[in-house]
Design a binder for these strands. Structure first.
Length: 558
RNA sequence: GCACCCAUAGCUCAACUGGAUAGAGCAUUUGACUACGAAUCAAAAGGCUAGGAGUUCGAAUCUCUUUGGGUGCACCA
């Protein structure tokens, strides 16, 4: 609809000698009495043109009426302070249904991002343990955003920044070694309590690793030498990596690139970065440490990049990593998915990237708020002390990948997410995932029955259908939604919010259920049945494609 | 103490980045299966968008401020 009107609006503007604004906003009015689309063009231009908005609107409407086919747009009117409202003919929607069958599995895609290489980095959990619930939201958002960008035509690389260097990894090695010792002789080498050493990892998986090392090597690794600790660390890293990828696969997620942090060191990129920062005058030495001069870049305090001990802080490899993505690998756009606890860290990195001559606007940082697990109205606490926490695997085990993924993206990124365990396990109308899937299964069921009656419904059904027969309000509502899918994908691609897709699909499902309730499909006159087959098939296409973007299955039966 | 995020129906959240009468789901109440899946549909009720001031044709949205939550403020990541 919008794409139908835009050219006419541009023509009308130029006929009136008015420069077109960058963006012509066309909106769906909340109130259906205001027509099917509306624009505030006259109001936004009134000031610059020094005209009364309504006067301007009048001129525009006159000009539009002479250009637009009255059989397609049945009414163009002015309302309120100067809104121009458009009313489309009911038959217009049906006539556009062909676009669904022509595109098929690609319906909803656009080519906006053609030729633009984008790197989406998500999950990126340290290989020091199992993925927990928070990582789940990161994973679901990241993967869905990657899908959304793909549907917008971008050339997408899915990347996992594998944080396998640094202090946390050493702590992992130490923890495994202590468990290993405990396994050899618990009396002689008791595992330290939290009070004694709070840097240790305490999950059961550490004990498991210690045990397997003890089985394999006996007492050979007993000495806490660097060599032995390295071996423990390696074993821990491998174990965690295997566990993490397994969880990802289960969630229907496959990264294209696992970028190892330690490669930044081994390939000299960290050293190179610090060198370049110094050349640009934004790094200096003080008190035996190397600092990033953020105060020179309009920020408050300088921060340490290399500690006086010689170890880098997280900041330095992060800068090197982003510089690598932009300068060496030349991505046109870089998307980072970060939890709210990292909100204060990325401006440093962006400032440094800018100092290195790259455009920080190429980096889009998506911050998501935390997840609280709720059960019977009470918060499920996670315990650091015992190392026991609800893992992502637990959720997948209990609810399956569809429900888990959906719950993580059904709220906008920037709102706290309540993951209601009771609701997720409910296989009923309360559970929004089933609502969507049920609509898809219901359509599938009808199409199966058509098949039994010797009618195969497919894309050519739409091409051959008499769509002018689709005039029931429920049919029109469903048609409108189906046709809005491409612009919804485009919008999701602009704001990078998966929730937009989830909410849209809920609307489509609701419109289908209502249509199904109000209008019979089977057993009507052949032409009407066929038209409704076409509509149902189009709805199924939208649901299937949309669910695919969310990484959720579209079942034929439930 | 300083910075960032948030506050919308009883609960969980929307509101197309400034548009017209703020919308959904759940919960509550009440209706609809002798025809395609009732995991569905329909109806009712529910609001001074936390409080206050400002910006303009127009504010839940932008600015300031008060209150009440979250997060971060290391030579941790």
């Amino acid at each position: 609809m919008k794409s139908y009107l835009r050219p006419f609006l541009l023509e009308a503007l130029s006929a009136l000698n008015i420069a077109a604004p960058d963006e012509i906003t066309l909106e769906l009015p909340r109130n259906p009495e205001h027509g099917d689309l509306s624009t505030n063009l006259a109001m936004t231009l009134a000031k610059a043109e020094k005209k009364n908005p309504r006067e301007l609107a009048n001129a525009l409407v006159e000009s539009l009426k002479s250009r637009i086919d009255a059989a397609v747009v049945t009414d163009i009117s002015i309302a309120g302070a100067g809104f121009i409202n458009f009313k489309f003919a009911d038959t217009f929607y049906g006539s556009r249904l062909k676009s669904v069958s022509e595109a098929g599995e690609a319906y909803g895609k656009n080519a906006k991002g053609t030729g633009i290489r984008v790197n989406v980095e998500y999950v990126s959990a340290n290989p020091t343990g199992l993925l927990h619930v928070g990582h789940g939201r990161n994973a679901a958002i990241g993967d869905t955003v990657a899908n959304i960008l793909h549907w917008n035509g971008y050339d997408v690389t899915r990347e996992y920044y594998f944080n396998n260097a640094g202090n946390q990894m050493n702590n992992l090695g130490k923890s495994v070694h202590k468990r290993y010792l405990e396994c050899l002789d618990a009396a002689k080498f008791p595992f330290p309590t939290v009070e004694e050493d709070d840097s240790l990892y305490r999950g059961e998986y550490i004990t498991e690793m210690g045990k397997s090392l003890a089985d394999k090597h006996g007492s050979a690794l007993q000495e806490a030498s660097e060599e032995n600790l390295t071996q423990c660390r390696k074993a821990g890293e491998e174990w965690c990596f295997a566990a993490i990828t397994k969880t990802m696969v289960r969630m229907n997620i496959r990264h294209d690139v696992y970028f190892n942090e330690d490669s930044l060191y081994s390939e000299g990129k960290v050293a190179d970065t610090i060198q370049k920062l110094k050349e640009h005058g934004v790094a200096y030495e003080k008190d035996g440490a190397t600092w990033l001069a953020l105060s020179k870049m309009g920020m408050q305090d300088d921060r340490v990049m290399i500690k006086s001990s010689g170890e880098p802080t997280y900041r330095l490899p992060d800068i090197a990593y982003h510089h690598d993505k932009l300068a060496r690998r030349k991505f046109d756009m870089v998307v980072d998915i970060l939890g709210a606890d990292h909100i204060a860290t990325y401006p440093d990195v962006l400032a440094a990237v800018k100092a290195l001559g790259e455009n920080p606007e190429k980096v889009r940082v998506l911050i998501y708020q935390f997840v609280t697990l709720m059960h019977n109205g009470e918060q499920v606490k996670m315990s650091k002390r015992t190392g026991k926490a609800y893992t992502l695997d637990d959720l997948l085990e209990e609810f399956g990948e569809d429900v888990t993924r959906f719950f993580f993206v059904m709220r906008s990124n920037n709102t706290h997410l309540e993951f209601d365990i009771g609701l997720a396990s409910e296989q009923s109308d309360k559970n929004p995932v089933f609502y969507l899937q049920y609509a898809h299964a219901r359509i599938s069921s009808v199409l199966r029955q058509a098949e039994e009656r010797g009618v195969t419904v497919n894309a050519s059904t739409i091409a051959g259908a008499e769509t002018t027969l689709l005039v029931h309000p429920s049919e029109i509502d469903l048609l409108k939604l189906i046709l809005r899918f491409p612009e919804t994908v485009a919008r999701a691609g602009e704001i990078l919010e998966p929730q937009v897709i989830a909410e849209f699909l809920r609307e489509v499902a609701a419109a289908f259920h209502k249509f199904y309730h109000d209008c019979r499909i089977l057993g009507e006159a052949e032409s009407l049945t066929n038209a409704r087959f076409a509509l149902a098939f189009a709805a199924k296409t939208v649901l299937r494609n949309g669910l695919q973007i969310l990484g959720i299955s579209a079942p034929e039966k439930m």
